[in-house]
């Protein structure tokens, strides 16, 4: 009995963390935060920095909101969430300027616009305001990593095709003709559509496989009976 209880509990902790990365990926499944997803994924470095910055804001604001969830009256919760989120965005803004001015200029207004990223307010309202600090941190980390991975998926493809390099390093030889459109906004839409197509195909295939496996099992089961 004792061995059964941790195995019953551990999936919930792992689920809280993993759902943001795969099952409820903010970009590929929930299709949230499209503005930075399309705007700053013109290079892998920009995409990665944006992902990390958003993860920091997600974790910071989720922690504080979860800590203060019993103290915040329902009527003013959205106002307080926005103040808390804006605080962490301002901190990230300073941090990126301190790390690299070049990176800061490349990301432009999109750092400040993390404030209105619906993933963050969404997680605050749907999860952090109702769950313990530990659970909220796990959820925020999962969602943040899921968002970063999604941005990197777009960023690497766009940079490779659009400039022939990855993280600023040349990958293809001089013979490669860069597909300039890929680093422009339409390229963002095309690559996002490609990834969404791949994801839904994958999902449909696994559901069909599961269904056929279930039917097959039922058949073999009925034969045995």
């Amino acid at each position: 009995m004792n061995t059964a209880s941790p195995s019953n509990q551990s999936p919930t902790v792992a689920d809280t963390f993993l759902k943001g990365i795969w099952k409820e990926n903010p970009v590929f499944v929930m299709v949230l935060g499209m503005c930075p997803t399309l705007a700053v994924t013109n290079s892998a470095t920009n995409a990665f920095t944006m992902g990390i910055a958003t993860t920091f804001v997600l974790v910071g604001s989720s922690t504080l909101i979860s800590l203060l969830r019993k103290f915040i009256p329902k009527q003013v919760r959205i106002a307080t969430y926005i103040v808390i989120i804006a605080t962490f965005v301002t901190m990230v803004d300073y941090a990126i300027q301190a790390v690299s001015l070049q990176l800061y200029l490349a990301l432009g207004a999109f750092i400040q616009l993390i404030v209105v990223n619906c993933i963050i307010l969404g997680r605050a309202e749907a999860f952090a305001s109702k769950n313990s600090v530990f659970q909220s941190i796990l959820d925020a980390l999962g969602m943040g990593i899921g968002f970063t991975v999604a941005l990197l998926c777009l960023g690497t493809v766009r940079e490779l095709l659009g400039t022939g390099s990855l993280m600023g390093m040349r990958v293809f030889g001089d013979a490669f003709e860069p597909w300039g459109l890929m680093v422009l906004p339409p390229g963002g839409f095309f690559v996002l559509a490609g990834w969404l197509l791949l994801f839904s195909w994958w999902k449909r295939r696994s559901t069909t496989e599961a269904a056929t496996a279930g039917v097959a099992m039922q058949r073999t089961g009925s034969h045995e009976i």
Binding site: L68, F71, V76, V83, I84, T87
Partner: peptide
């Protein structure tokens, strides 16, 4: 108090 307190922390 909630709004004031959170603004102070921020």
């Amino acid at each position: 108090v909630a709004l004031g307190g959170i603004s102070l922390i921020s």
